[in-house]
């Protein structure tokens, strides 16, 4: 089994949790299979392939048939985890995701690897910042964006148990464990990472720990920010959003486009239910060349950037 190797000062590559969990599940349930588009290495599935050679289906560099094959495997009683770089999985095969997986309601788990801007320098073709906007209207597709290794493992376990289509959006960006005591994975429910009532910071995936650090900065200024790990994007936790709106100001943070993603979802919800200022931290569109770290800093996906967005939201608070 792959072991979770810390990469830097307690930061972990969540892909290790993904593949270790998948192997455990596959040992116990012969229906679990993996489908890839020549993405064995980038999905960290080498060890899975060695253990279950017949259950690793590599269709080659062909995303449309990869997703269609996933639907067909589900029709044949398998539980397929279709794993590929999220930019190609959701972009190249979008109509297959819509028609073959979501509309057909097949029990397929789509696993978007290296999502967001993990491939920073490779440019916008390899960034996957549009996937939330593309997939959110597919209302029966549960979208989960784990924030750390623990949540990744829990999300993989839940996806295998859940009967229905799921999109797991994973990253190759190392993140620290959130270290929340007595944690329970509850899909569809936002998790309070930091309590506060002056405003709410709603984050997902790789940005949750940054939002928590931003809350620490704000606390030093006397501002109490509630930080929510909004790991389920579909369906939205409406109760948590009502409570967030009640603070009077919201910041959203995502490693994705600010159009149509988590920020878009929160803005849709609040404008329809309880209008409050919403400051969206994310990416405005196609991005210039740069490392992932540089792009995070440049676009304010940092404790300082998120704290600055919090000040903008608070300044607009009624």
């Amino acid at each position: 089994m792959a072991t979770a190797a810390p990469t830097a000062a307690g930061f972990q590559d969540c892909r290790n949790a993904w593949v270790a969990t998948l192997e455990q599940l596959a040992e116990a349930d012969p229906r679990i299979v993996a489908v890839v588009n020549d993405s064995v290495g980038s999905s960290k599935l080498n060890s899975f392939q060695k253990k279950f050679p017949d259950r690793l289906i590599n269709v080659g560099i062909a995303e449309q048939v990869m997703v269609g094959v996933g639907a067909g495997l589900a029709n044949g009683g398998r539980i397929p985890f279709v794993s590929a770089a999220s930019c190609f999985l959701t972009g190249r095969a979008l109509e297959q995701v819509k028609a073959d997986i979501a509309y057909s309601s097949f029990n397929v788990k789509l696993v978007g690897q290296s999502s967001g801007i993990a491939y920073g320098e490779l440019g916008a073709t390899h960034h996957s910042i549009e996937d939330f906007a593309w997939l959110r209207p597919l209302t029966n597709l549960t979208i989960i964006v784990p924030a750390d290794a623990w949540e990744t493992a829990e999300a993989v376990k839940w996806a295998a148990r859940h009967e229905g289509p799921v999109y797991l959006r994973l990253s190759r960006m190392p993140v620290p464990d959130l270290n929340i005591p007595d944690r329970q994975f509850r899909p569809g429910h936002a998790e309070i990472v930091h309590e506060g009532s002056d405003l709410a910071i709603i984050a997902c995936g790789t940005t949750v720990h940054l939002a928590a650090s931003a809350a620490d900065l704000l606390k030093a200024e006397g501002i109490q920010a509630r930080v929510l790990n909004f790991s389920t994007i579909n369906p939205l936790d409406e109760a948590a959003l009502h409570a967030a709106a009640a603070t009077g100001a919201i910041v959203t943070v995502e490693e994705a486009s600010i159009r149509g993603g988590l920020g878009g979802a929160v803005a849709e919800f609040t404008s329809a239910n309880k209008p409050v200022p919403v400051e969206r931290v994310g990416f405005p569109g196609f991005l210039p060349t740069g490392s992932t770290d540089w792009l995070f800093q440049e676009y304010g996906l940092s404790p300082e950037g998120i704290a600055a967005a919090a000040h903008r939201a608070l300044a607009r608070k009624a």
């Binding site: 067909g72 495997l73 073959d100």
Partner: peptide, 15 residues
């Protein structure tokens, strides 16, 4: 769409 899905059904039968 049908041929790729049918291919997956056939793979399930094969494995």
């Amino acid at each position: 769409h049908g041929f790729p899905v049918a291919t997956g059904i056939a793979i399930a039968g094969q494995i």
